[in-house]
Design a protein around this nucleic acid. Structure first.
Lengths: 135, 135
DNA sequence: TTGCAATCTGTTATAGTGTAACATATCGAT
DNA sequence: ATCGATATGTTACACTATAACAGATTGCAA
């Protein structure tokens, strides 16, 4: 039958690593189908859920896409700031625990207890930016 | 025929106001279909796009849902922090220009120019929180 | 007035994203 | 061995969103 979960998840990670940019679930599915044409969406989504839970990949909510986590600090509470270049599609991962903590604190004063931070900043990266490298 | 754009957008706002919680595009569509059963998704999405651009509603990227903007400061650069209670589904809008600016600044040092901030914090609100009102 | 272009709206169809539900298999404990 | 718990396979479907084209409306110029 199909390969076991660990191998599957490794394949998903490989695909994301090769791409070096965000991939949609169906992009990944298309890649893995080259080796297993029968693979179903469910299979991919389960792998993505497992990898997201363990912090090995990030889900980009505003793009419906997935990205390999660059940090080694996997696991709980690893909420990164993801800066997305709308021009070239590149995504950078920034770790800013103080900022995340500031937000949690600000909301905490209102009685809100934060468990997951979705922080995705759209804009233009330095390579694509006007005035910096350009002109 | 169908109603004009302004009336349509007003109806969308009304629906969101009545709900007082995030609604999906298809939730809104279902409501408006009570008066115009032929209304198509495209129609709703166009209204939502217009309202989002003018800052009258927020799109919750992590929920695929839409919410009335509580602030009067509509328009450009109105990026709010949205705190989402995963228990009861309520969403609060917090304006924290300093935090948003801090983020832009931090990323700006890497040459990134931010144009849009998606900040959605999931967690538990004060009403649902354990230890606060509960127990 | 007529004609034309630009823009907005309506309509149909389809693409893209994600999950429910159930079947089958796998593995450890008794 | 057999039972229960968990993981995986499979089918079908639900939800989200947009493309592409048709028709209507407006404004403006000839």
């Amino acid at each position: 039958m199909g390969k076991k979960g660990d191998a599957l998840r490794a394949d998903v990670i490989d695909a994301l690593q090769r791409a070096d940019k965000p991939l949609s679930a169906y992009d990944i599915l298309a890649e893995l189908r080259e080796f297993n044409p029968k693979m179903a969406p469910t299979t991919i989504y389960r792998a993505l859920a497992a990898l997201t839970e363990t912090g090995r990949i990030h889900r980009l909510e505003s793009l419906n896409a997935y990205l390999l986590c660059e940090s080694d600090e996997h696991g709980h509470g690893h909420d990164a700031i993801l800066s997305i270049c709308d021009d070239c599609g590149s995504v950078e991962e920034t770790t800013a625990p103080e900022l995340i903590a500031s937000m949690s604190k600000a909301l905490g004063e209102g009685g809100f207890e934060a468990t997951r931070h979705v922080v995705e900043i759209h804009g233009t990266c330095s390579d694509c930016g006007t005035g910096q490298t350009g002109s």
